[in-house]
């Protein structure tokens, strides 16, 4: 069963178009407070967790099919070179194949010790960031945008690795800002660090740098 959680602090209507186009037979849920990211220590979208029949996590939060190829986009034409576009598509296909493989054969499920080792490293700062983010979403929803912005900013300072917190706050400020010049500057500032760390699966080596 697929559970697709929309991290969408603007509410369901803002994400509805995509869900309707997907004509999904699985669960599509709306998470205005990014509750799932808080519970599972997720920092970006798309990230996924695999859960077995007994309700155990068998793969920790990991990038679900996306890659860093977008960082080598031609910024004037906003396009990817064909070989990069193809590599990106291949990574999606490969990740989906791994998920299907797990469903039918159980392959790629990790033993409990390996899952524990790969879980996100949570800190008091991250915990406070999630509390501030939640407070900020409430303030935003109740017409107190200026006060909300201060808490969103504090949350991002406390948890700089969370792209979801930063981009959601940017989107609430203005639709499109989450992918605007400030976003690209932040991506640039990553340097050699990945935006989408590849999952620890066969065939998913770290993508080559520029």
């Amino acid at each position: 069963m697929v559970v697709a959680v929309a991290e969408e602090s603007r509410g369901a209507d803002h994400a509805r178009t995509w869900v309707e186009q997907a004509k999904a037979s699985y669960w599509c849920l709306v998470d205005t407070e990014h509750r799932v990211a808080d519970l599972y220590g997720m920092v970006n979208v798309p990230q996924a967790v695999w859960i077995d029949e007994a309700g155990r996590i068998v793969r920790p939060p990991e990038t679900a099919g996306s890659t860093d190829h977008f960082r080598r986009m031609d910024m004037t034409t906003r396009t990817l070179a064909p070989e990069l576009a193809q590599a990106r598509q291949q990574a999606r296909t490969d990740y989906l194949a791994a998920v299907k493989d797990w469903v039918t054969t159980g392959r790629h499920a990790l033993p409990p010790d390996a899952v524990k080792r790969a879980l996100p490293k949570l800190t008091p700062e991250i915990a406070e960031a999630h509390a501030r983010f939640r407070l900020a979403v409430w303030l935003q929803r109740n017409g107190r945008a200026a006060e909300a912005a201060a808490h969103f900013a504090a949350a991002s300072r406390l948890h700089p690795d969370s792209w979801s917190m930063w981009r959601q706050a940017a989107d609430l400020e203005a639709v499109g800002k989450a992918g605007g010049p400030e976003f690209w500057a932040r991506v640039q500032a990553l340097g050699d660090k990945p935006y989408y760390p590849p999952p620890d699966l066969p065939g998913f080596a770290a993508p080559r740098k520029n």
Partner: peptide
């Protein structure tokens, strides 16, 4: 475990899916 609404407003709880494999994934419009 968590409970969240779907797009029809129906509350769904992760633990209702016990007994099945679950691929829990996030996405966003932004």
């Amino acid at each position: 475990d968590f409970a969240l609404p779907d797009f029809a407003g129906v509350t769904r709880r992760l633990s209702e899916l016990r007994g099945r494999k679950v691929f829990l994934s996030t996405w966003a419009s932004w």
